[in-house]
Write a protein that binds this DNA or RNA. Structure first.
Length: 587
RNA sequence: GGGGCUGUAGCUCAGCUGGUUAGAGUGCCGGUCUGUCACACCGGAGGUCGCGGGUUCGAGCCCCGUCAGCCCCGCCA
């Protein structure tokens, strides 16, 4: 399969079974070891590395060109696959049982000295990320990056096949779309033919896929490129790929079933067995027990507990200083006795960083109690918190909106420091029953927590006007080991309800018509019940590749300042191009 | 928009309390070498200490500004 008119195999494919065969290879010089009378060349391609030997028996011109080769030049080699004697095998190389004795060797692409190394010493750090991005063609030659992108390819194919087998149709949607003032900032593309008007790149194909449901396509998917002009993180790029899907005549469980099928297939592709169905946890329970809407359920046992009642009579001043809706919540840390004073101080620092009041703590070793509030506790009082010998209790106080994120961060930090064995390596869950609204920081005004097409929970529709913050949404997130993999919802199909939601968003009927008229028109034309989901594919690839950032699973990513260092984007526009687009630059 | 870390040879890094000529490994160039696999050994070249300003008798080191990369907060319906 890998053979062409210029080669018979890939370098990294050769094994003992090929011994005796005459092969033709093409690859890059990974390393060269010139011993004088014999030269070894590690020849590399996407399949791996094979050792080419040019010994005293090789033709004179082969020996000459072999000794003049420099790193990263491209050579074509003709030779014989030979078994290596037992004491010369290299167990660290997949091809290490054999080597190729070259009878012909031609440099077909000479290479300047690479700006960053492709072949690194074992202990050598990676070049600075700036250089890796600038010389991306070299960075991508490294076997680790090749493996990442090869895995990414396999994951994409597997997703495509899984959904196609489930009768989903792959349908492409526009890249030049309509600006949406809500949500993330749009990337705008000015129109030449319509002065002052712009297209926007899609933040997601959301409305299109709903239109496809109205059109009767039933089940849609797309490996969709999406664009959001927001600030970046290690796990956020301005352009990214979603496994986007939508289905008709479904409830939330149906959509979740489809998504589980895709995710388990992807994990299987990466060699991991995953159990279905995924566990379900309500948003409320997740916030209560883990302080976050993306709980890491590998460590279920370490959960946040409400100790307000248990500590009330102890007279701890730290707790008493907080009133009015404040609860005392904390973590009973099995084996927390192992935490040093410094550990706890740093945890308390973390708590303060995230706006908490700080951290009160008690540690028990034998009958000895120690810690910032130890003098207020007896063994019995501590026992009521579930804290035994060798354990520790970490506590904080305040309103949930403060203590939840604080305890979430403290919990994550504890897991990092104590590294307890996970109950399961792959902890998937569905977080369900999200609130439809959240209160806007500052004003406390209810604002939509999701996109405005998310259906309210049928039981809560009556509360829409009276108690918006108590309304649940038919919205669900897929969470894996504390990472959000994606989210989805059942959509509104009733035009009147959709108009009500837009009104809650503060849109006038005129604005609603102008921005979403085409969706409302479609919904009025006979819309099937439908819902869908979008998997953040880059993040999945990052997790399955064990990569440290999205940049390591994207061939040509942007920097945190949204620059492309390789090709140099963005770049100043030429005045004549701006003129054609009717644009004046003021900055 | 705000905060933090980093920036010294092609690359990875060291550089003491501010002190004379800025170092190591690797890569590169030249040489020796017939079983290496990070080959070994000998020799050599290679520096705008990110950039600009300031303090000082003297700055890689201190101060101010700025640029770039990364991480975090805000932001990401």
């Amino acid at each position: 399969m890998s053979g062409t008119t210029r080669r018979t195999h890939r370098c990294g494919e050769l094994r003992a079974e090929h011994v005796g065969q005459l092969v033709k290879l093409g690859g890059w010089v990974h390393r060269r070891r010139d011993l004088g009378g014999i030269v070894f060349i590690d020849l590399r391609d996407r399949a791996g590395i094979v050792q080419v030997a040019v010994g005293p028996d090789a033709p004179e011109e082969v020996r000459r060109s072999a000794s003049g080769l420099t790193g990263e030049s491209v050579v074509e080699v003709f030779g014989k696959v030979v078994a290596r004697p037992a004491d010369m095998k290299n167990p660290e190389l997949a091809t290490g049982d054999i080597e190729v004795h070259a009878t012909k060797l031609v440099k077909v692409g000479s290479a300047v000295t690479p700006e960053i190394p492709v072949a690194r010493a074992k202990s050598e750090e990676l070049p600075a990320e700036e250089l890796r991005l600038k010389y991306r063609h070299l960075d991508l030659r490294r076997p680790e990056m090749q493996a990442n992108l090869i895995l990414r390819h396999r994951l994409l194919q597997r997703a495509r096949k899984t959904l196609s087998d489930l009768e989903f149709l792959e349908i492409e949607t526009p890249i030049l779309t309509k600006p949406t003032p809500e949500g993330a900032r749009d990337y705008l593309v000015p129109s030449r033919v319509h002065p002052g008007e712009c297209y926007a790149l899609p933040q997601s194909p959301q409305i299109y896929k709903q239109l496809l449901m109205v059109s009767g396509f039933d089940r849609y998917f797309q490996l969709a490129r999406c664009f959001r002009d927001e600030d970046l993180r290690y796990d956020r790029q301005p352009e990214f790929t979603q496994i986007d899907l939508e289905a008709s005549f479904v409830g939330a469980e149906d959509v979740q079933g489809f998504v589980e099928a895709v995710l388990t297939a992807l994990w299987d592709e990466a060699g991991h067995a995953v159990e279905r169905p995924f566990r379900r946890i309500t948003w409320q329970e997740s916030m209560e027990r883990y302080g976050t809407d993306k709980p890491d359920l590998r460590y279920e046992g370490l959960a946040i507990v409400d100790w307000t009642a248990q500590v009330e009579s102890l007279g701890v001043p730290f707790f008493a200083a907080h009133k009015d809706g404040a609860r005392v919540r904390g973590l009973a840390v099995k084996g927390g006795g192992a935490l040093s004073r410094k550990d706890v101080d740093q945890l308390a620092e973390t708590a303060k960083q995230f706006g908490g009041a700080g951290l009160a703590w008690v540690k028990r070793q034998g009958d000895q109690l120690s810690g910032s509030v130890a003098k207020h506790f007896s063994l019995e009082a501590l026992g009521r918190l579930g804290v035994g010998d060798g354990d520790a209790a970490l506590m904080t106080v305040g309103p949930d909106r403060v203590t939840s994120p604080v305890l979430d961060k403290v919990r994550q930090e504890l897991i990092r420091r104590l590294a307890p064995p996970p109950a399961r390596p792959h902890a998937f869950c569905w977080v369900v029953d999200f609130p439809l609204f959240e209160s806007e920081p500052g004003t406390g005004r209810p604002v939509f927590a999701h996109h405005p097409f998310t259906a309210p929970h049928p039981e809560d529709v009556a509360k829409l006007d009276r108690e918006p913050l108590a309304c649940r949404a038919l919205h669900y997130d897929a969470v894996y080991n504390g990472h959000e993999l994606g989210s989805g919802s059942i959509r509104i199909t009733e035009p009147a309800l959709q108009r009500t939601v837009f009104r809650h968003l503060g849109l006038s009927p005129q604005e609603t018509e102008a921005r979403f008229g085409f969706l409302l028109t479609a919904l009025a034309a006979g819309a099937p019940p439908h819902g869908g989901f979008a998997v953040g594919f880059d993040r999945v690839a990052m997790l399955l590749a064990g990569a440290g950032s999205l940049r390591d699973v994207i061939a040509f990513p942007k920097t945190t300042a949204a620059r492309a260092l390789f090709e140099g984007a963005p770049a100043p526009a030429r005045p004549e191009d701006l003129a054609a687009l009717h644009i004046q630059v003021t900055a």
